[in-house]
Design a binder for these strands. Structure first.
Lengths: 154, 154
DNA sequence: CTAAAACCTCGCGCGCGCTTCAGGTCAAGC
DNA sequence: GCTTGACCTGAAGCGCGCGCGAGGTTTTAG
């Protein structure tokens, strides 16, 4: 575990204090390197990612943590521009909690209603699954279906 | 309730058996008339929407029902092309339940994992909401916050 | 020192799901 | 019959969230 060359699959990243390469950061945050650079350009990454003397990005834990917040907001459907707005608020420091709260509460309401809709539609999907299972087992027994086209239900 | 002219907000649609205009169908399915036409062009609407002699669409209950299935699939993130595939299967009639089942089960798995992800991210959002609420009530009392920037958590 | 691999910026491209526009046609009230 | 508004088709346009490629620089392995 000391100086052994790491397998090709997991490249160097030798010194933890030196930070991670963009490729490794991508792996750990679950987005592509393109997306990482895009998020930075788009003003989402307010942690000010380190650079080497030559200009290569070096990611630290705080960066990854914040980027993960961003990806979770994205995953819940928050548009980039809203995440940027939120990032600006956070970056501006204490004193704007009211606006942050409003933003997050609005988004929470959004997510909650999305969840409800998803649950509702999941019901339809599961009914379909059940129907097709029934038809299949019935069909394998006696090949008897009622013609469905008349019902227009699929 | 008999022959009274309906209010402007809800236009004619006098004879129920004659079917509904595209505008009314849009209202009832919750999508725009553009989207209705687009779905038809895209091959989603397998119910064969009626037309007047002049070429205007007339929607019946079966159409609305099927379109609602489509919108629910869309609402759960199924891409148009997959809905089209499903529509083709349904339209082909009985005998392909196996493929329909596979399609729906795959989509169900998708929706379930989406739900889980949404729930997870909702946790983050609610923690943020709580934090900002606390900060606000604490702040209104004594204007004392710990500087957050060091925590990189937002 | 050198070669290969990883990274850089800039900017164009793309897939998706509609939306809008142009230029007409149709339907319904009066 | 005439006007007004809803509707038609076909095609182009758009906003979003990345993906990709060119052309060049930096790192790292050997």
């Amino acid at each position: 575990m000391a100086d052994v060359t790491p397998p090709v699959a997991e490249p160097r990243e030798s010194d933890p204090r030196a930070g991670l390469s963009i490729a490794e950061a991508a792996r750990r945050t679950g987005v592509s390197v393109h997306t990482l650079r895009y998020y930075e350009r788009a003003g989402l990454v307010i942690t000010g990612v380190d650079r080497t003397a030559g200009g290569w990005r070096r990611y630290h834990q705080a960066d990854l943590k914040w980027i993960t917040v961003c990806t979770k907001l994205r995953a819940t459907g928050m548009p980039i521009r809203d995440i940027r707005r939120y990032a600006q608020l956070v970056s501006a420091g204490p004193g704007n909690e009211k606006e942050r709260l409003a933003l997050m509460e609005a988004h929470r309401a959004d997510v909650v209603s999305k969840l409800a809709e998803l649950q509702d539609c999941l019901g339809l999907i599961e009914r379909k699954v059940d129907i097709y299972r029934e038809r299949l087992s019935a069909g394998q027994a006696d090949h008897l279906w009622t013609p469905e086209r008349l019902s227009a239900a699929g």
